[in-house]
Each structure stands twice: as C-alpha cells, then as structure tokens.
C-alpha cells in the first residue's frame, strides 16, 4: 500500500479556502442525509421484483436496436433459455433511465407486467426525492447547477471521509504554496469537466454522479503540473509490522501520474459498458482538466514574465 502524503497534515487554519470547500461538502452531506436511498435498497432486496423486471427488460432490449451488440443484449438473449439471469438483468435495469421512464412495454405476461409496473412506479416516484437525484449529475439531471452541486454531495460516510481526506492533503499542499484561489477554481472547473466526461462515456446511465472525486483528481492533475520535479512524500506499508516494512519515501511529483491514474485506467479498460459502479471516466476527465488548467496557468505566467522583461528592457 502506498499513499501520497504531500506535505502531511497541516493545520486547516493555514488553508482557509480548502477548509471552506470541506465545510461546504459537509453541509451538503448533512442536508442530504434525510433523503438517503432507503427505498432503493429496499427495492433491490425484492427478488421477485428483480426477476420480473429482468424478464421485462430482456424483452425490451431484444426488441430495441439501440442495444444491439451490447452486453445487456447478450445477457437478454441468453436469458431466453436461462431464467436465472433475470435477477442480474433486473438490477441492471435500475441503471437504465430510458427503460424505467418508458410509457409502454412489450411483454406478453400481462399479469407480471402490471404487478411490476405498480412497484416500478412507486420506485420511480420515490427516486425523484433522493438526494443523489437532486444534487447529482446524470443524463436526466443535466442542468448546469447540477454540474456544480454534484461535486459537493457524497453518497455515504466512507465516500465523504475518503474524499475529504485527500482533498485536505492535496488542497492544503497547494494552498500553502500560494495556489489557494487557483485550487478552488480548479476544483470547480475540473469537477464540471469530470461530469461531462462521465456523461459522454457512460451513455444512458441513469445513476447520478456524486462526489468530489473528479474535482480532487483535478487538483492532483494541477499539483503534478505545477510541482513536476519537486519531491512528494509518500507513505508505504507492506502489511507486516516490521520496522523496515513501513515508512516514508520521496518521489518526484510526476510519479503521481503512475500511482494516481493506473487504477482509473484499469477500471476504464476492465469496465463493462453499462455496469460500471465507479466513475473512472470522471476521475480521468477531472485529472486531465486539472492538468490543462495547470499548463495554462504556467503558460500565462511565462508570458507575463517575458512581457515584464521586455518592458524592463525597453525601459532601460
């Protein structure tokens, strides 16, 4: 296990802007607690619902040419002879916004269809009040406001704490070097780009994107560009309490490209379209946009420096 430690834990008072971002994240989290997806979890536990939904979904995607040659359709065709696949398809169907919001369904078992529709409508109704639907960014919820709000909302305590820890580490490292306001701008802009990347590469996914991961990836991208050769402190632990099996080491900032992005690249390559749980594309999109902001900033700074030196020459 290796973990970028940046400048270690500094006092939050020295990083007021990052502290502000952390507070906003916490406020959003507590605002959304009342509307967590209890209904969704309850619905997922209903096996009969899943089976029936899977059977209906299978019929739909066999008929719809837009699903041709997709994994979903392969499963659907297989499910004609293997009914045990209906449960899995039922779960996948919850991610398909187009399917859930259709008015009519082609399914010849009317009894099952009617029964399922009632359940589904109840779910869709309750789904609209979920916090992740209100603040998150998805195909159906793609307003500009959602591009911003999704960056501050998290789906669970672990998700929130994990993101805030990294935000604190990388954000305070940047702010202590005088890049506080640039960090905030990068947080927002790269978060927005992350959502756009997610939306572009995960077509038709109804699951809303939430969390600051994309924005934090943007900050890491910015850090890599600004600190390219400067050393970053890493903490490593090799799962054995031997004195030499854990400790810290310094590697150049560009090494973060390897440690930060390998997991996301692997996730993108290994992900089955339509089934991804983690928004790897959002992470990659955020990191690229953060790096782009860093490059633009350095370019602007170099141009300004040159202009100043020319002015100085002219003055002399």
């Amino acid at each position: 296990m290796i973990f970028p430690y940046f400048d270690a834990f500094k006092s939050l008072y020295k990083s007021p802007l990052i502290l502000l971002l952390i507070i906003i994240n916490l406020l959003y989290f507590f605002a959304g607690v009342a509307h967590w997806e209890q209904e969704y979890k309850k619905t997922l536990a209903e096996k009969t619902l899943l089976k029936t939904q899977g059977a209906i979904y299978a019929t739909e995607i066999i008929h719809d040419y837009r699903y041709d040659n997709t994994v979903q359709q392969k499963i659907a065709i297989k499910s004609i002879t293997d009914h045990s696949l209906h449960s899995a398809l039922g779960q996948i169907a919850f991610r398909d916004h187009h399917f859930l919001t259709r008015k009519n369904y082609i399914y010849n078992d009317t009894v099952a269809l009617n029964w399922w529709k009632k359940k589904k409508n109840r779910f869709v109704q309750s789904d609209k009040s979920f916090s992740s639907r209100i603040y998150g960014y998805s195909k159906s919820q793609n307003k500009i406001v959602n591009l911003i709000t999704y960056q501050f909302f998290h789906s669970g305590v672990v998700h929130l704490l994990g993101n805030l820890l990294i935000l604190f580490l990388v954000g305070s490292a940047l702010e202590s070097r005088g890049f506080g306001s640039l960090s905030v701008v990068t947080y927002v802009i790269s978060g927005a780009f992350a959502a756009i990347a997610y939306s572009f590469f995960s077509k038709g996914m109804s699951i809303p994107l939430v969390g600051a991961s994309g924005s934090i990836s943007g900050l890491v991208g910015l850090y890599i560009v600004l600190m390219w050769r400067k050393p970053v402190k890493y903490f490593y632990y090799l799962f054995w309490p031997h004195p030499r099996w854990y400790g810290t080491l310094y590697l150049p900032a560009w090494s973060l490209i390897f440690f930060w992005s390998m997991g996301d690249i692997a996730g993108v390559l290994a992900g089955v379209p339509g089934f991804a749980g983690v928004a790897y594309w959002a992470h990659i999109g955020g990191a690229i946009s953060g790096a782009a902001i860093g490059i633009t900033y350095l370019g602007y700074k170099a141009a300004a420096k040159e202009l100043n030196s020319q002015k100085q020459l002219a003055f002399n």
Partner: peptide
C-alpha cells in the same frame, strides 16, 4: 513485496484489464 504490490500490481491490473472485462462479460452471460 514493494516491487510486487506497489509497482508491478498496478501495471498488471492495467494490462489484464481487457481480459478481466472479457471474464466479467463471460460470467454475466454464463
């Protein structure tokens, strides 16, 4: 362990990702 867990494993995870995807699909369609 450092080499295996921290350096080689991420590389392998990227290299094996396409195969992992195929296996996932195979398991989904049995």
């Amino acid at each position: 362990l450092f080499d295996l867990l921290i350096i080689i494993m991420p590389i392998i995870s990227v290299l094996l990702a396409p195969i992992k995807q195929k296996i996932k699909i195979a398991s989904l369609v049995n």
